[in-house]
Structure formats: structure tokens, C-alpha cells
């Protein structure tokens, strides 16, 4: 249960907020959905981000800047209205439920990174960047943010930055049997194509051991190859996700089907672009 003496702060500037969260037990509050799940008694103060003016999506010449307070549904709506950010929107529209997507924010989801996150796989596949303020202020790639342990430090996520150009072929999927269920894993694939040739590729899965995995060998293998369904058989040996067993599924089952879906998604991309 959260403490009855919980203190609330509503700062209106980032520096104020950064200062507040330096104290032990004081953390940021965005959508609050994670905070309510953990119900940690150790939280003594919540710093609400709603006055920090982080609820924006700015479109610049080469990039989109998405404020951390943007909710999943706000992003999806923006994507529909402006015909952009489609891969991210496609992934996020599979998350949780309509009313929850009205609450869950980009920032809270980045900091939280649950196993069932629908956000991380597409961001890593898109090579997204993010800006943080606080202990390690700066701009980092989302991938290094999670891998370098930075995620644990005290900071405020200001925004994520995505390349404007969307000249790549992509697929995202979540594995769950039901529409409103915590997905077992999420896959995102993006291929930069030059005619029939693969110029660059990113193959990402989340929900695995160590949270996420990029199949770099597979990515390397694909680069320079021409699109062809034969690639599917060869790529198999490079895609070896490692899972932990849970009460419902064994790790080996998850590994089997994750492979199946990787191949499915790749083959869809290949067929669509052949």
C-alpha cells in the first residue's frame, strides 16, 4: 500500500523537478499505472510531471520529438492524423487497453520497461534517441539507455527523438492469445531497402532474458543481401532468443514460437517488397 502521508509536488520546471527527485523516496509520477501496481511503501513523495510541459509532439526537419508525458493514445492519434510514426503507433496500439492507453505515458514506460512493454522493441528497431535531464543529462540512444544501466539513475526523461524519414520496411508484433493480456514478447523488425537490396536491418525482441535482444549476427547477415524467401532458412541459425520459463509456458516453447514469428514477419516483409 502506498503511504498515507504521501507528499505531492507539482513543479513547473525541469530543474525544480530534477532537484526534487534527488531525495530518497521521491520519484516522478506520470500516468501512475506502474506506481499503483508496485504500491511501494518506500515512496514518500511523488513529483507529478503534468506541469512540466512535456506533452508535445514536435515535427522538425529531420526528426520527431515526442515529449515524455505523451500518452500511448495521444501518439496513436497523432500518427493517424499526420500519417507518420506508423511503426511506433502500430506497436503501441497493441498495448494494454483503450482506457489504459489514455493514461500510460512514453516516459513512464521507458523508465519502467516491463517485460510486456510494447514500446521498447520498435524504439530500438528505429534506433530512437532520447534526451534525459538529471544525473547524466544528455542525448542517448534508447538502446544504450537500457544497456548501460542508466535506466536506474535518477533523471527525468524529456523526450524521445525519432528520425523523420520512414523509408524502411517494418513489422511489429506482440505475442499474446488475447487482446487484453500481458504479452509474452514483442518483436520489431525494420529493414532499410535499396531496391531489392537490404541496406540496413534491425531485428529486436523484448520479453526475453535480459529484457531485450538485438540479433546482430542476423542483422549483419541480411545487410547487402537481395530480398528473397531463401533468406528465411539461412537466418534461422542467427535468431536464438533465450527465455525464462514461467508458470504457463516453458522457455523452449517460447523460443520455438519466437523463431516462428521472426520468420513470419520477415517473410511478410520480403513478400510485400519483392
Amino acid at each position: 500500500m502506498l503511504s498515507e502521508n504521501l507528499k505531492w509536488y507539482f513543479p513547473s520546471s525541469l530543474p525544480q523537478a530534477v532537484k526534487l527527485i534527488q531525495k530518497p523516496g521521491i520519484i516522478l509520477h506520470a500516468g501512475g499505472t506502474r506506481i499503483l501496481k508496485t504500491q511501494s511503501k518506500n515512496i514518500i513523495g511523488l513529483v507529478d510531471i503534468s506541469n512540466l510541459k512535456l506533452n508535445y509532439i514536435k515535427s522538425k526537419t529531420n526528426s520527431f520529438h515526442i515529449g515524455a508525458a505523451i500518452t500511448f493514445n495521444e501518439l496513436i492519434k497523432y500518427s493517424k492524423e499526420n500519417n507518420c510514426l506508423k511503426m511506433l503507433a502500430a506497436a503501441l496500439s497493441q498495448a494494454a487497453s483503450t482506457p489504459l492507453r489514455n493514461r500510460i505515458t512514453i516516459g513512464g514506460s521507458l523508465k519502467d520497461f516491463p517485460l510486456w512493454s510494447n514500446l521498447y522493441a520498435p524504439l530500438i528497431a528505429l534506433n530512437a534517441m532520447m534526451e534525459i535531464k538529471g544525473n547524466k543529462s544528455g542525448i542517448y540512444s534508447v538502446e544504450e539507455y537500457v544497456s548501460e544501466g542508466m535506466i536506474k539513475s535518477k533523471h527525468i526523461i524529456k523526450e524521445i527523438i525519432l528520425p523523420r524519414k520512414e523509408e524502411f520496411a517494418w513489422k511489429v508484433m506482440r505475442f499474446a492469445l488475447l487482446k487484453f493480456e500481458y504479452p509474452l514478447f514483442n518483436i520489431a523488425i525494420s529493414l532499410k531497402l535499396n531496391g531489392k537490396m537490404i541496406d540496413d536491418s534491425r531485428l529486436v525482441i523484448t520479453g526475453v532474458r535480459n529484457r531485450f535482444k538485438r540479433f546482430k549476427k542476423a542483422e549483419k547477415f541480411l545487410i547487402g543481401k537481395n530480398l528473397s524467401l531463401n533468406l528465411l532458412n539461412e537466418i534461422e541459425k542467427f535468431v536464438e532468443p533465450k527465455f525464462v520459463s514461467d508458470y504457463k509456458y516453458s522457455s523452449s516453447y517460447k523460443e520455438t514460437i519466437a523463431k516462428v514469428y521472426f520468420k513470419d514477419l520477415l517473410s511478410e516483409i520480403i513478400k510485400e517488397n519483392l
Partner: peptide, 20 residues
């Protein structure tokens, strides 16, 4: 789904799994 000690593990709607 039970633990080795007989504790039910999927004790929320989300983990139990229900049609919407």
C-alpha cells in the same frame, strides 16, 4: 496455475486471461 507449494500464481484477470 500453482506454485510447488500450492499457491495460485495467476490470480488477476490479466494473468488468468479472459475474453474481451
Amino acid at each position: 496455475y500453482f506454485s510447488n507449494h500450492g499457491k495460485m500464481l495467476n490470480d488477476t484477470f490479466g494473468k488468468y486471461g479472459m475474453y474481451t
